[in-house]
């Protein structure tokens, strides 16, 4: 029973609560680092390492960190681990370090990491937090690699730098460039909306503040707006139904 619970914490991040495709967090690296599979893979691994380490530390310190200054504390912990990853990559993988450029440092402000610290690590014990970090990190990695595969195979006719014989002659270079990132991400989410589990009320994917770590600070400006919007759209749906019923009755 207990093992099952731990397994579910780990697996949740992979599919059901995939940070990128379901929670829509960490969009910046998702779009920027998926032009090639290698970049996506290294980004995913770097972020997973930082996520697991920071989750463990934050969870271990959860009784010491005062509630009022918790966000700056989390940022310091995360920035520390990002610096460690930066130094390690600079030393052992200089090519990848160059390729990732500023995005490596920007793992600090990746919403997924701060979001998991805020939503999970500060309420749970060290082992659960580590598993949650690992699951979420792998979910992030999975989404990045899936997107990068689509973009690289169709856009450059290669996979992780290895050329694919036939596709290589019919590439769509735009997919590896900036507009392709938005396009593939949009289509991927649309496909998941379409084929995803429909049981229960699967909420319409808006860009929400739900998982955003700064939501508590900002007073949920855009969330409040989203709520308004759904409230407005609901009656519309009802009226449509009524109209349809009316038509059916008329017929």
């Amino acid at each position: 029973m207990k093992k099952q619970k731990k397994l579910s914490i780990l697996l949740r991040g992979l599919i059901a609560e995939n940070p990128v495709l379901v929670l829509v967090l960490g969009t910046c690296p998702t779009l920027a680092q998926t032009g090639s599979v290698i970049a996506a893979l290294s980004m995913g691994i770097a972020a997973t390492v930082v996520l697991v380490c920071s989750n463990v530390v934050i969870s271990a310190l959860r009784k010491i960190i005062p509630d009022t200054v918790r966000i700056p504390c989390y940022i310091v912990v995360i920035a520390g681990f990002v610096t460690i990853v930066q130094l390690l990559m600079h030393a052992y993988l200089p090519d990848l370090y160059e390729m990732m450029g500023v995005y490596l440092a920007l793992i600090v402000v990746n919403c997924i990491i701060l979001g998991r610290a805020e939503m999970f690590a500060r309420k749970n014990n060290v082992i659960d937090s580590a598993l949650d970090g690992l699951g979420m990190g792998l979910g992030f990695l999975l989404a990045l690699v899936a997107m990068a595969t689509i973009r690289e195979v169709l856009g450059a006719g290669s996979f992780a730098g290895i050329k694919i014989p036939f596709l290589q002659d019919y590439t769509l270079p735009i997919l590896t460039m900036a507009p392709g990132g938005f396009l593939v991400f949009g289509i991927l989410i649309a496909v998941i909306n379409k084929i995803g589990p429909k049981k229960g009320a699967q909420k319409r994917k808006e860009f929400s503040c739900e998982g955003c770590p700064s939501a508590a600070l900002c007073g949920k400006v855009s969330c409040a707006e989203n709520v308004e919007l759904t409230e407005i759209t609901k009656p519309e749906i009802v009226t449509n139904k009524e109209e349809k019923e009316g038509e059916a009755n008329g017929n």
């Binding site: 392709g180 649309a190 909306n193 994917k205 808006e206 860009f207």
Partner: peptide, 15 residues
């Protein structure tokens, strides 16, 4: 329905 919300926004951003 499938592209309402975020997907259509991203596709517009692409353009």
């Amino acid at each position: 329905k499938a592209i309402q919300g975020l997907p259509i926004t991203l596709i517009a951003a692409s353009i």
